[in-house]
Every structure is written in C-alpha cells, then in structure tokens.
Amino acid sequence: MKLTPELVALTLRDVSDDGPEPGWTPLSEAELDHLVDRIEREAGNDPLLVFAYGSLIWKPEFEAVSRQRATAYGWHRSFSLKIERWRASSDQPGLMMALERGGQCDGILFELSAERRRQDLRALVAREIRYREVIDMVRWVSVRTEIGTRKALTFWASTKRSGLTQSLPIEQASQLIARACGQGGSCAEYLHNTIVDLHAEGIRDRNLWRLQALVAADIIAAQTT
C-alpha cells in the first residue's frame, strides 16, 4: 500500500473543536430516542443486524454476538460526504465515506446482543447520527450471507433525494482527503484504517486501493511545495 503509516502521520495535527457541522442541527436527546424507537419497531422481534462497510468494522464500539461477511448488492463505497468537522475543518474541508447506489459492497454483518439491544443501538445511533438533517441516511438494506439474504441496518446510505452527498472526480477527492484533518484525526488516517481492516477481513475494494495511491502521492507532493 502506498499510503503508509509514515505518510498518514504527516497529515495529523492538533485541531480545536469548532462545534457542530456548519448548517446542521444537533439531534436532541428526545429526537435520538424517537429514532431509536423507530428502528426497534422496524426490526420487530427479529435479531437486529448492522452492516458495516467502513469505520464500524474497525471500531464498532459494541460487543456483537456474531459477525460474518456480507455483501450489499446495489450499493458501493464512495468518499462523497463533504465534511467540515471531526476529520476536517471549515478551512480545510474533507470527505467521509457513504454508500451510494450501484455496484456491490462487501462488508461485515454484526448482530447486536438481545440483552443489550436498546443500550447498544442507542449508543451506535448517537455516534453515527448527530444531526437532524442526516436522519434519512439511516436505512435498512438487504445483504447476502452464506446462510441467505438478511435485512440489516446501515448508516450513511445516500439517496438522490437526500442531497447530502456528491460524487467527485477521484483526483479532487484525493486532494481533499490528503489535506483534511480535524479533532478526530485526518481523512487520510480514516482511509488507511479502513483499507487495513478490510484487508484483514479478506476484502479488497479496488476503488479505495486506487484512491489511497493518489492520496499518498498528494501527501508527498504537499511536503515538497
């Protein structure tokens, strides 16, 4: 991999917390509970499954009772969500991953514990959905596993109606990822961690591999200017 830990380290710097994402409204505790209630109703008595395709793979922050490979058909990973907080700033915006329509996406399917379902689900939703404007990015998708097709919850699955994501030319995406850093780390670090963990799961996303090579080259170029 061209995007080495040494290059990632060059993108990290101290960035202060500048508050919420500009233009987005923080979700209230009542709105969070309402969203969790809705998800639990939709799940019914079935096990609550979560499809992870990015940072949830390497940092789920809950103890799953099971995990297995799964594929979401009709979706693919894309650095299409522009951000100005967490791993970016208003001075240097960055990009995070979302699921966009088309293709297929290999990931990991987690099953939440029945005993801790409400607690773990609420913590997960609070981590992923912090703003009122992005509630629609939580959705159910059909994924295929070795034992058949399952319904799974996933986050940041975009639609044209949401208007929150925009596919960019890979060269433009690479420049944003190479430069952006926020209080949560850098976008390059996020890309690197995702590829490493996907590789550990036996998953190779060719688009991410092409992107990481461009990001590495952009980081090197920035050091010589």
Rank of each mutant, 00 (worst) to 15 (best):
M97A: 06
Q166D: 07
I170A: 02
G185M: 05
Q172Y: 11
T159R: 14
P93N: 13
A123T: 07
R130G: 15
T194E: 00
T149E: 12
I177D: 01
E100I: 15
R127V: 12
G102C: 05
F110E: 04
G94Y: 11
A114W: 06
R85M: 10
R179W: 01
R118Q: 14
R85V: 15
Q92P: 02
R179C: 09
R179H: 07
Q172P: 07
G107N: 02
C181V: 15
G102W: 00
Y190H: 09
R139M: 04
G182T: 04
G94V: 15
C187Q: 06
V138N: 06
Y190K: 04
S158W: 08
Y131G: 07
D91V: 14
E115C: 08
W140K: 05
A180V: 12
R204I: 15
A157F: 00
G103V: 04
W156T: 08
S167H: 05
A157D: 01
I83P: 14
I195L: 12
S90P: 06
L191H: 00
R179E: 07
G163S: 10
A98H: 04
G182D: 01
D197F: 14
D91E: 13
C181G: 07
A180F: 03
L168F: 13
I203Y: 02
C181W: 02
S142L: 11
Q119D: 13
Q175D: 08
L153H: 08
R210Q: 13
A200V: 11
R204T: 14
W86S: 14
S89I: 11
G102A: 12
E100L: 13
G94P: 15
L198D: 00
E146F: 03
R127C: 09
Q92R: 13
I203R: 01
D106T: 08
I177P: 00
R150D: 07
L198C: 02
A98C: 14
C105Y: 00
E111Q: 14
F110N: 03
A123Y: 00
W156H: 10
A126K: 13
F110I: 09
D120A: 09
A88N: 04
E115D: 15
A152L: 03
A173F: 05
